Amino acid sequence: MPQLVTVRVARPTGRAVRLWVPVLPVVLLILAALGAVVACLVYRIEVMRAFGTGWRLLCAMPGTRVDVREGRTGVLVSIR
């Protein structure tokens, strides 16, 4: 399975724009989106409304900080 796809876009100015797209995260994102659509259909939830709500939650996350401590072990998750 390929790991990386390189996309080269030619521009009228002569300079090309090159983009590197990792394959695995894109495939996982597509599978997660399809799974979410199936779950919405099974539970009779409007698909567009569910994706809109998910997008709003994602946009509200920057600045979130979660700090969990249990004994001598600690986990800090900071979303920027």
Rank of each mutant, 00 (worst) to 15 (best):
V75G: 04
P25Y: 02
R8Q: 12
C59N: 10
L76P: 00
L76A: 13
A33N: 04
T73G: 05
A33W: 03
A50F: 10
L58Y: 11
V9I: 11
R8Y: 02
P12W: 02
E46C: 11
F51G: 00
V17H: 14
G35K: 09
V5M: 08
R69G: 04
M48N: 11
T53A: 14
T64C: 05
V77D: 00
V5C: 05
L76C: 14
L57P: 01
L28H: 06
A32P: 11
L57H: 10
R49Q: 10
V66G: 05
V68Y: 14
L24I: 12
A16C: 12
P25F: 03
R69L: 09
L31A: 12
V77Q: 00
V21I: 09
R65I: 06
R56I: 09
R80E: 01
R44H: 13
A33V: 14
E70N: 15
L41Y: 09
M1R: 05
T6R: 08
V37S: 00
V47S: 00
L76F: 09
G74F: 03
V7C: 03
L29H: 08
V7G: 01
V42I: 15
V42A: 12
R72Y: 01
P2D: 02
S78C: 11
R11Q: 14
L58V: 13
V47Q: 00
R15V: 15
T64N: 01
R65A: 06
G54D: 03
